[in-house]
Design a protein around this nucleic acid. Structure first.
Lengths: 103, 103
DNA sequence: CGTAATACATCATATCACGAAGTATTGGGC
DNA sequence: GCCCAATACTTCGTGATATGATGTATTACG
């Protein structure tokens, strides 16, 4: 998918991936990649941003000798997901405008 | 609307605004603004980009003593609009993923 | 004569996706 | 024992791009 089109939904996608269950970077990539391709550098950049804007909180654990950081969605993160429904509605209207047959 | 979400559709919106009839910057803004807010600086940046990538061609005219540049969509621009239908389908699938009830 | 409307241009800034490259550990195959 | 894939996270540089601020210039109208 076009990089620009991705921008609006990448953050939302990542939040959605931890919506019901805490998850960690490596797993999030595996979960999201089939539906929306993203690289490790992109994902960790996004996770950092979401942490800085208090959309999620981090808990560092050790799993089989490896560091594993679990991400947990916050109230603010859940609200962001909720608000996206309205954003999507707006986007649908724009799409209608784009595809409108003006002849 | 969120700036990031806009990015993927701004170019498409502008192309769509000149799809059936040549138009000029000032008019495009008036047409697009009600459905998707954009500033003059943004619009002219986009028009320049679309010209550089051969999505449209420009014809400079004088109208009532003022310069007026008419933009005409090219075959490549029309193809871009067509391709957007597929992009949109992908986007819909991502939306399904985001809103999926995983409980 | 001033102001709004028309019309386009440029620049600096901030945001962000992504490839490249790196660090470190575990586990399986040979 | 050794190599490589898989697991897991980090940092840096680059390119793309939306936008506010600012500027230029003309016409129409009261």
């Amino acid at each position: 998918m076009d990089a620009q089109l991705k921008r609006g939904i990448l953050d939302i996608c990542v939040l959605s991936a931890i919506k019901y269950e805490d998850s960690y970077g490596y797993k999030i990539i595996k979960d999201v990649k089939p539906v929306l391709d993203l690289s490790e550098s992109t994902l960790y950049t996004i996770l950092k941003r979401l942490e800085e804007t208090n959309m999620l909180v981090v808990r560092t654990t050790i799993h089989e000798g490896r560091v594993r950081k679990y991400y947990h969605i916050t109230h603010k993160g859940l609200k962001k997901l909720e608000d996206f429904r309205d954003e999507w509605k707006e986007l649908m209207e724009v799409y209608s405008f784009i595809m409108e047959d003006k002849r």
